[in-house]
Each structure stands twice: as C-alpha cells, then as structure tokens.
Nucleic acid binder design. Structure first.
Lengths: 332, 332
DNA sequence: CTGAAAGCGCTTACAG
DNA sequence: CTGAAAGCGCTTACAG
C-alpha cells in the first residue's frame, strides 16, 4: 500500500505538505497541489484511517449499541438502525454496530479502547445498566429512549405522554366513553421500557379527567400469543367502543384478528395506534395513529452527538419529538 | 488516558514487557506479571485499539455491507445482521456496518483505508457491482447470496434449487397436479436477485419432469399490493390445489388473505413455503416449509472469513446450505 | 507557501 | 526472562 511518504516522494514534496493538501489545513500552491493529486492518482493512495485516528485522536466512527430482545418487533428496530447509519454517513462517520448481550461491557470496551468518538444507545430503559459505563467514558453519548436519571446525557425520544393525550382527546372528542388500551408486553415494562408506562399512565390520567373508562392490558409479542391475547381482551370488554394499541406486534396482527371476529372498523370499533408510516405500509395498517418517526429520532440523536463531540460543554439536551396525529378514518 | 508507558513506569518494567504481558507473546515471570496486572488495575488501563491496529496491521473489525431495498422485508434482513454480528464477536471481531447507497464506493472506502480486516456482503446479486471493488481489495470477503461470477470469492447461500425440488417433490408425492408459485417481486429479479430464478427455474423444471402444471407469478412487497396480487393470482388459477410461496412479505400476509377468501388449509389448498423458524413465529405461519437458516448462513460466512484472514491461500469456498423441510401439516 | 522533526500508542525483531 | 530502539502511517506545532 502506498503511504503518504510514497506520495510525497512521487510528487517531490515533503510528507507534511501532502498531509496538509489532504486535510486542507493550510494553503497549498496550485502547482504543488496538482503534483500531489497526480501522485495520489498514480499510486492509488488512500489515507490509512487508523494512522490518522492515532495522530488526531478522532476515529470518525460512532458506536451503535443495541440488543435485540425477543419481545421486540424486528421491523421497528431495523428502522432505527438504518436511520442512525444514514445520518452518521451524512456527517462523515461510520458505524460500529455492537450487539453484545453484555451492554455495559460493550460500552466500556469500545469507548475505553478508543474505537469510537461517540456512542448511540438504542432502546434505553429506566435503569439502563449501560449508562454508568457511558458516563465513565470520555466520549459523549446520545440515548434513544428515556432513563430515570438523565444526568450528563443527551436524550431523544417521542413524547409518549403527549401521544397518549392526543389519542385520548381524539377519542373523547368523538364521544367514546369506554376504551381498551393494549400496551407493550409485560416483559417490556419489567425490564424498564419507560415508553410503556409513560404512554399508559398519561392515557389513564387523561381518560380519568374526562370521566372515561379506560381498560389497560399488556399485549404479547410472539404468535400465537398475540392473536390470543387480543381476542381475550376484546372478549373481556365487549362494551368498549374504542381501542388504543401501543404495541407493534399487536397492531400488525390486529387487522386479521378483527376480520376474523367480524368486527368492522370504525363501524363496530374505533381504533387508534402509534406507528411509523413505513411500518404501516409494510403491514397495511389503515388506522388513525401517532407517527413514531424513527427516522427523525435516529437522525436527531446522531446530529446532536456529532455536535457534542466538538462542543463537549454545551448544555445537556433532552429532546422529545412532538407527536403528530395522522387521521386515517378508523374512528367514529 | 493511561498508556502502555504509564503502566510500564508504574510497574517498573519496560514498555515492551507490558506489551508482551498483554499479548502473551513471550513468557513473563510471575512476579513481573503481577506487578503489571496491579499497575493496569490501578491506572484503569485499556489498550488503544487504533495504535495496536497500526502496529499489527490488524483492526479486528469486519465490515458488514448491506443495503435496504424497498422490496425487501425488514424482519428477514435483521436476522442476518444479528447473526453476523454475534458470530463476529465470538471470534473477537467487531462489526463496521455500512449502508451507503453507493455499495462499490463503500467497499473501496473501508478496505483501502484499512478500516477492516475483511468484509461480509449481504444480499449479493447476479452482477453485483460491489464484487469488483472487493476483488481489488487486499482484504478477503464473504458473500451471502450467489453472483454469476464467483471467482476468487467465498460464497454462502441456501441451495434454492434443491429447496424448490424438495417442495415440488413433496407436493407431487401427495398427488398435486396444478401448482401456483409466488416468487419474489419482479424488482428482485430485475436487480439480479438470483435466489428468485434459481428457485423458480428448479421448481418449473422439476414439475415438468413429473408432468405437473406449475404457474409462476411475481409477488409484491408492499401493502396493499401484496394482498391484491395474492388474490389476483388465486382468482386466476382456481384449479390449482397447491401453492408454493417464495416471498417473505407474501407469506406473512397469506393467512389473512386465505381467511378472507374462506380458504382452509390444507382442506381447500395445500401451502408450502420457505422461511426461518423465527420468522414463522413472528407471523404465525403454520406452513410446511424449507428452513432458510439466516443464523447458520451468517455464522458460516463470518467463520470462513475469519479463517481466510489467516489463510489467504486456502481454496475458494462455495457453500450451499442443505435445505431442510419442516412438516407443519399444511399439505394434503 | 513549504519542510524537518516530534509525537500519537502500540508491536516486535534484536540483543543480552 | 527482560530492555532499548525502530517502526506502523499519519498530523501538526515550529521554523523559515
């Protein structure tokens, strides 16, 4: 492999001049620049990323930490991964994707060995064990999901409380008094997926204020449990006129469950949910829903992370994406 | 950050001794080793991955190249990603995940800048433009999917031809004479997804040999097109007694389509398909099917890649995973 | 506008 | 069993 020294020799200049020509960090005369460009082309030179990283202490790599839990729904996760990856490239960064089951260990490993300039944590839980490792790291991090203690950390998430209020308001405005809520699986709550209770608690509180009856249930994440649980819930609350589904796996299955029961939306039952547009298109979900915006979220997290790398002392950010309701005519 | 020099000073030994203690590349006396371990613990030393990579020319990172096409089904892709990531960690490697839309450019970028020791390409097409870039690289690669020209490259894929024959044989053995085949979307064929025609051509040929009628169709990948196309296909071939579905998005939707049509499996129609067990569990697919084994495939690709890194002159490998039929009672 | 030299944090022949 | 030194391929103050 050609090195910067080979290029320098070929162009008849010093190595530092080649380096400066590459980085643009100081003016180079047109003639010199042309000789260097010619030498680079002739030798097929590409800069060695590792050597540059060692000299500059910048790897131009962002760590992406994720764990795939059985109670998650794959399509949703992939949306976040792609959003983060795309946004990172747009800022000139590559993605080191780490899926170790030992999350804290993974954070420590990639940060303390200086493999990355910063870290994005996906699917952050209430008491996420990775956070201490991240706080101890010299690299900054950006979280997707809301932990109990956000100290020192930049946080990005949908405003699930507001999402719940928007959906309850929407149903209340249409006169619904009896509403069933299907939450994420119990497992998600147990491992601290705060979006579960943030949504549920806000929905319950809002409904109470209006004097509505709301019946919260855990949904399931794996078939045949999903269909079974939806049927059981609907059987248990025949008087309910509306359904709020905050559960990716359940909403994906809902159309066939309702069809099988002979329930027509919105004639027999109003349905609202939360999911991204892409997700809805994959699964033919014609429901009025709050957009979950994994693209926006992933992109914001990366962009803020990149900004923080250069401005470590900026104030900590907690950004909650404004929920937007998309009316699709599934309520009456 | 503590460096190897700090550790050496703290332990009262030379930097080389610390390095050798770390790598285990030469014997160290017990006493020295203990002093070094104590110093490492005291200083919280972690080796700098970039500096080590520069000195050894080994990054311990594998590049994972993928592109997400609209005509693909997210859950299947995520299975490959996780399999590759897990297998890599088991061999001590991290994953640099690259999703650039410019695939060849991405291969060139990460290989020529020495960011990775090897590359896994997902979703390889018949005339994959990334292959030339890979052949030009000094790092080895492993492909998942079968290109026209496999020269110099290690290839891993399911044996789709054999999978087709197994399914046709199974239907023939049960006496079926009129069979509909739903292939991947037309787009997949057009961009060179060889698994589409490898399966279809083998199925057609096998059926012809038995004197069976087989009717191949392209499926769709996005709702509402998927349901619509399945209905159109079934309408067009009322005489067919069996359905072979080689299309992730279509098989996921099939249960609800058939239910809606009042078709009972296997009483009214026999159904066979290809999908992984995990995939079937996510979508409640009770069909007799060939297992697609993304886990095995991803793992094999990584393990061979790691082997090739140390043995660059081993003969090229083309490994086609043996299809295994899982009987789930959806045929009669 | 350009160059010589020190330094980033490691590894590994070479020597003892 | 251990150390001094050169080298991996860059960047960047310092000097002119």
């Amino acid at each position: 492999m050609a090195t910067i020294g080979d290029v320098a020799r070929e162009a008849g200049v010093s190595r530092s001049t080649v380096s400066y020509a590459l980085s643009g960090n100081r003016p180079i005369s047109l003639e010199t620049r042309q000789r260097i460009d010619a030498a680079i082309a002739k030798l097929g030179f590409t800069i060695n990323a590792g050597a540059r990283a060692l000299a500059t202490s910048e790897t131009m790599v962002i760590g992406l930490l994720l764990q795939f839990h059985d109670d998650e729904f794959p399509p949703a996760m992939l949306q976040y991964i792609l959003a983060v990856s795309t946004a990172a490239r747009e800022s000139g960064y590559d993605i080191l994707m780490v899926t170790d089951s030992d999350g804290p260990g993974a954070v420590k490993r990639i940060t303390s060995s200086n493999m990355v300039d910063g870290v994005v944590l996906l699917d952050v839980t209430h008491e996420d064990p990775r956070l201490d490792a991240l706080r101890a790291a010299r690299q900054p991090g950006a979280l997707v999901g809301l932990p109990r203690n956000t100290e020192e950390l930049d946080v990005f998430d949908l405003d699930f409380g507001e999402a719940a209020r928007i959906l309850v308001d929407h149903l209340y405005g249409l006169g619904h008094q009896q509403v069933v809520l299907v939450s994420p699986p119990r497992h998600v709550f147990e491992r601290g997926g705060a979006y579960g209770w943030r949504f549920r608690d806000a929905a319950v509180e809002r409904a109470a204020r209006y004097g509505m009856q709301i019946y919260p249930y855990y949904g399931e994440s794996q078939q045949p449990g999903i269909s079974r649980s939806l049927n059981a819930i609907l059987d248990a609350r025949p008087q309910a006129t509306a359904l709020i589904v905050h559960n990716d796996a359940s909403i994906a299955v809902l159309p066939s469950v309702l069809h099988e029961r002979g329930v027509e939306v919105p004639r027999d039952l109003s349905v609202v949910s939360l999911y991204s547009q892409d997700f809805g298109r994959s699964f033919l979900l014609p429901y009025t829903a709050v957009e979950t915006s994994p693209d926006t979220l992933g992109r914001e997290a990366v962009q803020h992370l990149v900004r923080r790398m250069s401005n470590p002392d900026d104030p900590v950010v907690a950004k909650f994406i404004e929920p937007v309701l998309t009316i699709r005519g599934s309520t009456a």
